[in-house]
Simulated assay, not measured.
Amino acid sequence: MATVLTVNTKSGIQWYCESQGQGPSLILVPSGEGDCSSFDKVAAQLADSFKVTTFDMPGMSRSTAPETAMNDLSANIIAGQVIELMDQLSIEIATFYGCSSGGLIVLALAANYPARVRSVIVHEVPLTKKLPPLEELSDEQIVEFCHHVFSTEMVEDKGAWAALGSEYHSRLDRNYITWARKYVNRVERDFSKGELTVRPVDWTVGALAPMGSFFENVVTACHAGIPVSLLPCRHFPQVTMPEALAKHIREKALSRM
């Protein structure tokens, strides 16, 4: 069972964290919905091999953050905030997993803080792909848009998404607004070959996703000499195939030890 921690860092963020297991540190970084509960099954599967840490993203769900920590967010800024959290948790080096914007953060960690990163495992990173200007919508319209996108385009199994529960989805209704107004079209970035090769990277895309959605992942990874493999899912394997994702993470993480 996970231990819940509340950790304050110098940026003024009060992080909600969960930790379980023993062994080398493995950090699971949430994607755009910002809530670590989607990792519950994955973390439990991996706790026999790793000390697994995850958290709600700054300003999301149970992690609070001052405006100074949320203004002008970028993948690099959030990576620095995660390093502050690692310092408080006395984690010197870790393996990281992230999909979607979580993948952006872990790639930025590898590029900017290679001494703190053993390797990274990413799935369908948005890079510079732009979403519609969601900040122009009302809060209610943002929530409606996200309800549709997250429950259909992001997953191949609507039942698995719904099964995360009413409490989880209630938190997400608030997170969607923060995501649209603080994260979207701000954290996306390109990575050079040099940035992608400073630490080992294992990269996947979803076999059930439309090819065009994350084809840029294939182009970018191959340019850097990083093979790209397929997972039998769309955008959120931690939701729809947690056991298979845990097996994938375990194999890739241990191969980089």
Rank of each mutant, 00 (worst) to 15 (best):
H148R: 05
L131D: 05
F215P: 01
H148Q: 04
V218A: 11
G102M: 06
R116F: 08
S37Y: 03
M211R: 14
Q22Y: 06
P24V: 13
E67V: 01
P132S: 12
D202G: 10
L89I: 09
S11R: 02
G102H: 12
S49V: 02
K51E: 10
S38K: 08
H147T: 14
D139K: 02
E18T: 02
D48Y: 00
T152L: 10
T178E: 04
T220Q: 04
F214K: 14
L231I: 08
S31F: 04
T3Y: 05
G103T: 08
E18R: 04
S11F: 00
E153R: 15
K247P: 01
E144P: 01
W15T: 07
A65V: 03
L137M: 15
V52I: 00
V184W: 03
K193Q: 11
T54Q: 02
L172S: 03
A180T: 04
S119Y: 05
A2R: 03
F236K: 03
G34D: 11
F39Y: 09
F96P: 12
R199N: 14
V198Q: 14
R250W: 06
Q88I: 00
E195Q: 14
K182L: 09
M257A: 14
E136N: 10
C222E: 13
E243G: 02
Q22P: 03
L5M: 04
E67D: 13
Q238I: 01
L26G: 08
